[in-house]
Write a protein that binds this DNA or RNA. Structure first.
Length: 420
RNA sequence: GCGAGCAUAGCUCAGUUGGCAGAGCAUCAGAUUGUGGCUCUGAGGGUCACGGGUUCGAGCCCCGUUGCUCGCCCCA
């Protein structure tokens, strides 16, 4: 058996890479319109960063990390912890008090691949660090909503919740545990384990029986401080006024430990079982937790592959890629040298051109020109070279025009003019 | 980590009860000497995932392995 690509990775071939670049360009532009600036961080970090940032008990850290060199380093499984590490390390708070950063990078998680889930995948994400203003939440959420509408994505559910701070959650979790203990024998094995390790996660169970039990369970919202509730109400009002359709989901909790206060998630029915396009929330304790000054922050991450899956399903109209302007059909050595000189001049001016390198027949060269979508074909034959008179064939409508010239430089100049 | 399904040409897939390995698309070439698309003709391309077993004979039946896909968990 030949060597194959690692499980859960993809080759992005030319026909797809232009699509991907289109999406990336669009996302960059979007982020920049909101005045987010790009940040790039290393592909791998000290393993400790993720353990402390994301949480030792999370699934990602406990079983999905690509770690190496005696566990010293790990390929980044998510981007928030690295961004915050960089923020602290480079003293970005001194550059301006609010840092609005975006990224487009590959992440790595050792999971079983399935529809919309890969071991190497790309995320577009934004992080706003340094303000607890509810309008930052609203702006960031509306950026996400704008992203969806820019790509013409409907058919989604925008879920928002607030989960408070660790302190606020503590009393709730006690009560939740007590409540769930009554139903201990009805809970799944996973949930019983979570009862000790991470009871919050039980809230987003998908088992009907457990959902039923949770209907009468304590509600986290009731345990939150008035300020947290006010923040949430303000976010909701602001988000509504910006035209975002959302629904509140008190059971929405997320798999990373750093989240506090506002959390949100967008689900699409055009995806498989892995139906989240993007998700995020506030993480007001993370900067401090990683050794910086206490600094509020919020962010979200969007999966590019999932985004593209949805676009594919919706027959998203990707723009045509730039095609060849001039194709030179050649015959013999003199013709080929003449052509390549002209092509050199055309390329100086940024005009895309191509010729035959396989010594194929005229007919085959014409077929090739047609196949690659060349707009114009010029045959450089013996007669043409003798007369210095060439026909330019328009491949769209089969019309031909002719140019006379004094030599290759002159012809190149004339073709450049026609090109404009 | 667990469960299910699938594996035949570059791609999508047929292949009957176990009896010579197939089609469409794609690729390449040709259809009176130097002109694309449409049409027609032809060609190349296979360790039937791999290894074993049953059988006179296996793409087909049995066992194992690997890979892929979908799902669980979790996430984007």
């Amino acid at each position: 058996m030949n060597i194959q690509r690692p499980k859960g990775t993809i080759d992005i071939l030319p026909k797809d890479s232009s699509k991907r670049r289109h999406i990336e360009d669009k996302l960059r532009k979007l982020a920049e319109i909101y005045n987010y600036k790009e940040i790039r961080t290393p592909t791998f970090e000290k393993t400790e960063l993720f353990k402390r940032g994301i949480g030792e008990e999370t699934d990602v850290v406990s079983k999905e990390m690509y770690s190496f060199r005696d566990d010293e380093f790990t390929l980044k499984p998510e981007m928030t912890a690295p961004v915050i590490r960089s923020y602290i390390e480079n003293n970005l708070q001194n550059e301006s008090q609010l840092q609005k950063l975006y990224y487009l990078a590959n992440m790595y998680r050792h999971e079983r691949p399935q529809a919309g889930r890969f071991r190497e995948f790309s995320q577009f994400g934004v992080e706003a660090i340094g303000s607890s203003d509810y309008l930052v939440d609203a702006e960031l959420i509306s950026l996400g909503a704008k992203m969806l509408s820019d790509f013409g994505i409907g058919n989604i559910i925008f879920k928002i919740n607030t989960i408070g701070s660790t302190e606020e959650r503590a009393r709730f979790l006690d009560d939740l545990k007590k409540y769930l203990m009554q139903y201990r024998d009805k809970l799944s094995g996973d949930s019983i384990k979570r009862l000790e390790l991470n009871p919050l996660r039980i809230l987003d169970t998908k088992l009907d029986e457990e959902i039923e039990i949770l209907k009468n369970s304590p509600v986290l919202y009731d345990y939150l401080n008035p300020e947290t509730k006010a923040h949430f109400d303000n976010v909701l009002n602001a988000v509504s006024s910006l035209g975002v359709n959302y629904e509140i989901d008190y059971r929405l909790v997320r798999g990373f430990d750093y989240y506090t206060s506002t959390t949100f998630e967008v689900l699409s029915s055009d995806l498989g079982a892995q139906n989240a396009i993007f998700g995020g929330g506030r993480y007001d304790n993370l900067v401090e937790q990683l050794g910086g000054k206490s600094t509020p922050a919020i962010g979200f991450a969007c999966g590019l592959e999932r985004l593209m899956l949805i676009l594919e399903k919706n027959n998203y109209p990707y723009p045509d890629t730039d095609s060849v302007e001039y194709y030179f059909v050649t015959m013999g050595e003199e013709s080929k040298i003449f052509s390549i000189k002209i092509m050199n001049s055309l390329r100086e001016k940024g005009i895309i051109c191509e010729t035959d390198f396989l010594n194929r027949s005229i007919k085959s060269q014409m077929k090739e020109a047609n196949k690659i979508g060349a707009r114009k074909v010029i045959v450089i034959g013996e007669e043409e070279l003798k007369e210095m008179k060439f026909r330019i064939r328009n491949m769209k409508n089969s019309s031909e025009s002719s140019v006379e010239c004094t030599g290759s430089d002159d012809l190149a100049e004339k073709l450049i003019k026609i090109g404009k």
